[in-house]
């Protein structure tokens, strides 16, 4: 019981601290802006730990963060294997193929007005559909290994990427297009020198949305069949064995992979679209 009270006390103390920091003088400094969410995250972890211990929650319901971390470090070889299978082979290859294909398609669609008017409504429609549902079909077609996972990822990222890129390619103002006409510039110069650079923020938006979709697709596809490794496989089998510490360790890997993937794309965006108002400092 004392641990539950300690958890409550810790929560109140940390929240008071955050309130002071957030409303204090230095609230706009970068340090405080990082510190406050960090304190909040830490508070959640500590409260979680104390509650699990204090209430003696069984492992099969909720492991404490310390147990998850212990599992994480003791199972690093397995986790690394799963990461390779699901992220590097399944998600990443599918991401590259899907986004690449969607990009080329978008350039094509943009060139022909008929395609644009036909494909965009269809693309917008498909982008809202539960595409993970294609996973069982693609697993049957491409087998249990990573190829089927990559295929699911391709299907999942294709339409969001397509819709974003096409929208970006239309982002030029009539003045910018007139300028190109005064130079007598043809299709290719205006594509490479005007429309593609102008589309960059939109393209990156599509790429960023797709990072999460890629990981979801690769993991969920494994629920429909996989070799005896992979993050989705491990999650579903560990759940079956009630080894929840392993499930949580796998979730930690997924969270790290997901945010790192997103972070890398966001960093590339910062470098390439430094000129956009949203990125200027």
């Amino acid at each position: 019981m004392s641990m539950v009270i300690a958890a409550l006390g810790f929560w109140i103390a940390m929240w008071a601290l955050n309130r002071r920091l957030a409303n204090g003088a230095g609230a706009n400094t970068r340090f405080i802006q990082l510190l406050v969410p960090a304190i909040f995250g830490l508070t959640i972890l500590v409260v979680w730990e104390l509650l699990v211990r204090g209430l003696e929650v069984p492992l099969v319901i909720l492991p404490a963060p310390s147990q998850v971390m212990a599992k994480f470090f003791s199972e690093i070889p397995t986790l690394w294997l799963d990461f390779q299978q699901t992220f590097l082979k399944g998600a990443l290859s599918g991401y590259v193929m899907g986004c690449g294909a969607a990009f080329l398609m978008a350039v094509l669609v943009d060139r022909y007005d008929f395609l644009k008017r036909g494909l965009l409504p269809v693309g917008n429609f498909v982008a809202a559909l539960p595409i993970v549902g294609t996973a069982p079909i693609l697993v049957m077609w491409f087998g249990f290994d990573w190829q089927s996972k990559a295929a699911v990822v391709v299907v999942m990222v294709f339409f969001p990427m397509l819709v974003n890129t096409v929208a970006g390619l239309q982002e030029t103002t009539s003045m910018q297009r007139d300028l190109m006409r005064t130079y007598g510039a043809g299709y290719w110069p205006s594509l490479t020198k005007l429309r593609l650079p102008a589309a960059m923020p939109f393209i990156f938006n599509g790429l960023k949305i797709s990072t999460t979709l890629a990981l979801i697709g690769a993991i969920v596809a494994e629920f429909f069949g996989s070799p005896t490794m992979g993050m989705g496989f491990r999650i579903s089998t560990s759940v079956g064995q009630l080894a929840l510490d392993m499930v949580w360790a796998e979730i930690v890997v997924a969270a790290l992979a997901g945010s790192a993937f997103y972070g890398v794309v966001a960093m590339a965006e910062k470098r390439l679209t430094f000129w956009h108002p949203s990125q200027r400092k």
Partner: peptide, 28 residues
């Protein structure tokens, strides 16, 4: 390419430097 045209707004490409913007028609 008989004329140069100046619009109401400068309409410079934000992703190019000033030199890069002036080079634009020359590249084309």
């Amino acid at each position: 390419r008989a004329y140069g045209y100046v619009f109401q707004a400068a309409g410079l490409y934000p992703w190019r430097t000033i030199s890069g913007n002036i080079k634009l028609p020359l590249e084309i």
